[in-house]
């Protein structure tokens, strides 16, 4: 395990802890003994070249790898001290607490309102129409989309622009009141202006949720995260405060990557 210097001494216990996590697809190892903490009210960025396993690791945190038949996960991942791979863990509850935003915006082919109301409905979070409407408005507001769509909530979610669709997906994830939000390259399909809006949004969301973001873009990692983990070939090479990783990397491979030697 790679020891990580705690940036502040008064940190609360981490929201999620991953210890010695290994993932294999069939007999091909994708992640090899990775240990990382995900802290409350912080953003952690996972960086590394394509195929380094950062997305795979992200997907172990809400057990989305369960949907891939050949994937096998070993190691210990805890949410508030509770083992998420334990048999008594309800994956439905887990995913409600650990939300996810995908690389490509994937709104459902339903109205904007229905997209956001989907999660609260299936989890029975809102009692009555008024409460549901309040939840939808609050979620869209937090995702910074409310003012753009408040007059056309019944329009199809797929009719929005790419950046708006991604913010709709964030609103949809927020609507079920998660504690952790996982973002898998959320800006890679967006133009620079939409990307800036999402990054701004991540700043605002930081105070409320623990956020883990996978990104290809090192400037983005530097801008939005407090901690950064650098993956390479399925292993965690270096993990620490973002400022340290980018200004003073301890490992040669990290230095090579962030200076653009490969990746």
């Amino acid at each position: 395990m790679i020891a990580s210097p705690s940036p502040t001494a008064t940190m609360p216990p981490p929201k999620m802890t991953a210890r010695d996590v290994c993932v294999a697809y069939g007999d091909k190892t994708a992640i090899d003994h990775v240990s990382i903490d995900i802290e409350q009210d912080r953003v952690i960025a996972f960086i590394g070249p394509s195929g380094c396993g950062k997305s795979t690791f992200l997907r172990t945190l809400n057990r989305m790898n369960d949907t891939i038949a050949s994937a096998r996960v070993a190691g210990d991942i805890r949410l508030d001290g509770q083992d998420i791979y334990a048999p008594e863990m309800d994956v439905v509850q887990l995913r409600a607490r650990v939300g996810m935003v995908f690389q490509k915006p994937n709104p459902f082919p339903k109205s904007i309102y229905e997209n956001v109301a989907y999660g609260p409905r299936i989890h029975g979070l809102a009692r009555g129409k008024a409460e549901l409407e309040a939840t939808v408005e609050r979620s869209l507001t937090r995702a910074g989309l409310w003012n753009e769509v408040k007059d056309r909530l019944s329009d199809s979610g797929t009719a929005l622009s790419g950046g708006q669709q991604q913010r709709l997906c964030i609103a949809r994830a927020i609507a079920v009141d998660p504690e952790v939000i996982l973002m898998d390259e959320p800006c890679s399909a967006l133009d620079p202006i939409a990307t800036a809006k999402i990054e701004e949004l991540i700043h605002e969301l930081r105070g409320r949720y623990a956020i883990a973001i996978v990104t290809h873009n090192m400037q983005q990692a530097a801008r939005v995260s407090q901690r950064t983990a650098f993956f390479h070939l399925g292993t965690l090479v270096e993990y620490g405060a973002t400022s340290d990783i980018f200004t003073n990397p301890r490992q040669e491979r990290t230095k090579d990557y962030i200076t653009g030697r490969y990746g």
Binding site: V92, R95, F108
Partner: peptide, 19 residues
């Protein structure tokens, strides 16, 4: 991605199919 989006919100497979 539609299916993943629904599952990631905590929907079960059958809810995902129906809704």
């Amino acid at each position: 991605t539609m299916r993943d989006g629904s599952l990631a919100l905590g929907a079960t497979v059958s809810e995902t199919i129906r809704k």
